[in-house]
Amino acid sequence: MTFKLYNYVLSGNCYKIRLMAALLDVAYETIAVDFYPGFEHRSPGILALNPAGTLPVLTSGDMVLTETQAMLTWLALTYDVTGTWYPVDDPERLATITEWLGFAGRLSQSAGLARLHDMLNWPADEKAVKAAAISDLRTLELHLNDRVLEGGLWIAGDGPTIADIACFPYTALSPDAGLEHDGYPAIRNWLYAVRALPGFVAMPGIHYLHDLKETSGD
C-alpha cells in the first residue's frame, strides 16, 4: 500500500488529498475518522498520531504528515511522473505555488470555518469569519483575473499545480456558508476547469460535471 489517509468525508482538507491522489491515479487506504458527530479526532488513538487533533493525517511507513499542504507536496514529488504538479526546476513558479499553499491554509480558517459554522453549527464568530472569507475570495479572484488577462487560467503557470488543488475545496464549498460564486467569474471558470480535470473526484457540495457525458435524452 502506498499510504494511509485518516479521513473525514466532509472535510475540505481531507478532500484535497483524495482529489490529488485521484488525479495522480494513486490507490491508497482510507481510515474513516468520525469527526462529527463522534469527535473521534480528539480520541486518544488519533491524538497519539497527531497531537494537534486535526485531520487529515497521512502515514506512509514511518512518516506521519499532519499538514495538508505538506501532504500535497509529498504526493506530487512521490507519484507525479510528469513533474508538472510541483515543478521543482522553476524557482519562480515554485515560489508562487508555495505562496498559494499558504493562502490555502488561511482559506480553511475563513471559508472553511464559516462552512462548519453554517452546516454543522460549529462555534465561530460568524460575522468575522465570513468577512475574512469574502476578503480571501476577493484575493483569489484578483489573482485569477490577472491570469485571465495574461491568457492563463491556473494559479501558477500554464497547467494545474498543487496550488490549484490546495485552494480548490474551500473555494468551491463557500456556498455551503452562503457565500455564492456569482460575483467571482474568474473563480467560477477556474473551479470548472478543476472539475473537468481527468480523474476528478467529487465530494458533497461539489457535484460531478454531468455535461461531460452525452448519454441520454437524444
Binding site: 466532509l10 474513516a32 452546516m119
Partner: peptide, 22 residues
C-alpha cells in the same frame, strides 16, 4: 463495516442534497 464508515456514508449522501435544498 467500521462504525465511522457507516456514519460517513450517510453524511456523504445527505450533504450532497444540501446544496440542492438551499
Amino acid at each position: 463495516t467500521p462504525y465511522a464508515d457507516l456514519v460517513q456514508f450517510q453524511q456523504e449522501i445527505f450533504l450532497q442534497d444540501r446544496s440542492i435544498l438551499e
